[in-house]
């Protein structure tokens, strides 16, 4: 049922998502709390990105370790779509703060987008490879 050997390529998308998860929660976090103690809109985007990253990381990890071809196809396919959706989360699908000079736009959004592109490319590569290996 499980792969005996897991190649580096097979875990790359999960690695990128893990980086996205950790980065968005720490160094590349969005704007801080407002003075009155409430959160700004971008905080919801951070929560959505972190939740999405956790789900996709688990899915990709399963696709990397489980031998079944269909699990791999579904895992990589969902990861490509999920990364594409997460790319548009900050500022397009979900509202963020008012100024592009604010941290959520200047720091979090570019980081999320770069990591989503890397995840989508590496997952798409694995998806194509799995499709070819019948």
């Amino acid at each position: 049922m499980f792969q005996k050997k897991i190649s580096l390529k097979a875990v790359m998308p999960a690695f990128f998502l893990l980086l996205l998860l950790l980065g968005t929660a720490t160094v590349f976090h969005p704007c801080d709390m407002k003075e009155d103690g409430t959160w700004m809109h971008c905080h919801d985007v951070q929560t959505a990105v972190i939740t999405g990253s956790i789900i996709l990381t688990v899915l990709l990890a399963a696709a990397a370790v489980i031998k079944n071809r269909w699990v791999k196809l579904i895992g990589y396919g969902v990861a490509v779509i999920g990364a594409a959706v997460m790319f548009f989360l900050p500022g397009d699908i979900m509202q963020m703060c008012m100024m592009h000079t604010m941290r959520c736009y200047a720091v979090m959004r570019p980081f999320v987008r770069i990591m989503c592109v890397l995840t989508a490319i590496s997952a798409a590569f694995l998806l194509i490879r799995t499709c070819k290996n019948k």
Binding site: C31, K34, E35, M40, H41, C42, M96, C97, M98, M99
Partner: peptide, 10 residues
């Protein structure tokens, strides 16, 4: 005044 979404002032 501060916007409702965030701490931005215009």
């Amino acid at each position: 005044a501060t916007a409702s979404c965030c701490s931005a002032k215009l």
